[in-house]
Design a protein around this nucleic acid. Structure first.
Lengths: 241, 241
DNA sequence: ACGATCGTTCGGCGCGGGCCGAAGAGTCCT
DNA sequence: AGGACTCTTCGGCCCGCGCCGAACGATCGT
């Protein structure tokens, strides 16, 4: 039985959702959380340059609004993006948003260079590294861009060879193109992108640089990319410290 | 030569973009414009229940913000969504936004029933009609949902048989799943969805109901759906007046 | 020429929301 | 037990912004 005729059309409260992101501080929180990790309230407060009390209020709004999930451990309040759909929404918004000139301070430049090389974008790899991997996979026929982005049979076999098993396809698409705001080129996201990223961390191919969202490609990682993707290059390799 | 190392990372001004949609009136404008047509300033003002002067200010913001495109004809100011990417962004936001109870006035109920049956969603067909067509195409093997949404070889042939020629694939994906806020099921969008919708209007399969975004399936349209998709049903057929 | 309609500009009003600092509760470490 | 740290609550400030009405200019119809 259809009962759609008894359902009143309820307008989506677009303004309420957009209002959550319409504040500099809250937007800064969400962009920071795009690295996929859980941050504490004070980390976010310092990141955005506001008082702890202000951060608390903003986090309350974002959590009750459903954009953020929180988890309390001891005296810490950890928050992260609620789910991949939320991350995707923020990515899309960020990709369309106008740029805002950042103060080109010296440490900021060095940080931005590390971020441009390689970083996580929610649950997958981004930066020059993410783009290079995606391009190499396309060149080897593992990905197909003809109709949107799809994983080829060769691609499935290649993943299996690496020991990456994919969860059964549910709501979330296995492969998805993600365009973030430093690299202006698309890179691999979706469950495959997430699985590959996890595999790269587990196999020691990449490591986090300190506590930032930037990551560094290890020697093992360079070998792996050369062996499995014939991928060599310098643009995504971190400088020696 | 890579020159990415000279490019300063500029944070996307997410708050500015979200701020454009963070107002009830502006959000109401954008949702109305999701039907894909151009509206005049006063039409939007009346739709949202604000003074003309207020609408002018909001439209200025939305146009300079890049979300809307405008065209002036005589004393009229026509505005429409800037491009398909903008429409998609608003769709995604609307799909995630919390529902807001609408006052269930009697004319509103009747209007909502017509909208639920069949309407345009930006440039493609939506409502029960859009969902039924999409489902039928899937059942006949014209669409494949295994890896995201793709058009099969049979699907391409079927479109050619109808006389629908597709523009060469550029940035915009040929098929895309669109989830709007009345039907909670996905329906066909992308360039294929747009081309099919245009074909349906050109062939007299559907007509606009007055000046609303609701549409009515004609007798010719019912025959076409039966012949080409073995699709029969009542949920998407308008009542006789 | 005239009224009618559409759109814009401007001044002014009022409210909401973002910010802080101070005070306090809860947690961890030593 | 004590200090250090994280987080929350509250009061208060103030700016921004969404709203309107009035006046005006522009355009269309007759």
């Amino acid at each position: 039985m259809m009962n759609s005729h008894t359902v009143h059309v309820q307008d989506p409260d677009l303004a309420a959702l957009a209002g959550l992101l319409a504040d500099r501080t809250r937007a800064s929180f969400c962009l920071a959380l795009l690295d996929g990790r859980a941050w504490t309230a004070i980390e976010l407060a310092r990141h955005a340059g506001v008082a702890a009390s202000t951060a608390t209020e903003h986090l309350n709004l974002l959590v009750t609004g459903g954009l953020l999930a929180q988890e309390r451990q001891g005296r810490h309040r950890y928050v992260r993006l609620a789910d991949p759909a939320t991350a995707e929404l923020i990515e899309n918004l960020a990709a369309m948003a106008p740029r805002r000139a950042a103060p080109p301070s010296l440490p900021a430049v060095s940080r931005s260079r590390a971020l441009a090389r390689a970083r996580t974008c929610y649950d997958h790899l981004a930066g020059a590294l993410g783009v290079a991997i995606t391009t190499a996979m396309t060149d080897r026929g593992l990905l197909d861009w003809e109709q949107g982005l799809t994983l080829t049979g060769d691609g499935t076999a290649w993943l299996a060879e690496l020991g990456i098993t994919l969860p059964p396809a549910r709501r979330r698409p296995p492969v998805r193109s993600c365009l973030d705001w430093t690299e202006r080129r698309p890179h691999l996201a979706g469950t495959v992108g997430a699985a590959f990223c996890r595999h790269a961390f587990d196999s020691g191919w990449v490591n986090r640089i300190g506590t930032s969202r930037a990551i560094a490609l290890t020697d093992a990682g360079q070998r792996a990319l050369r062996d499995h993707l014939s991928l060599t290059g310098a643009s995504f390799v971190a400088e020696r410290t």
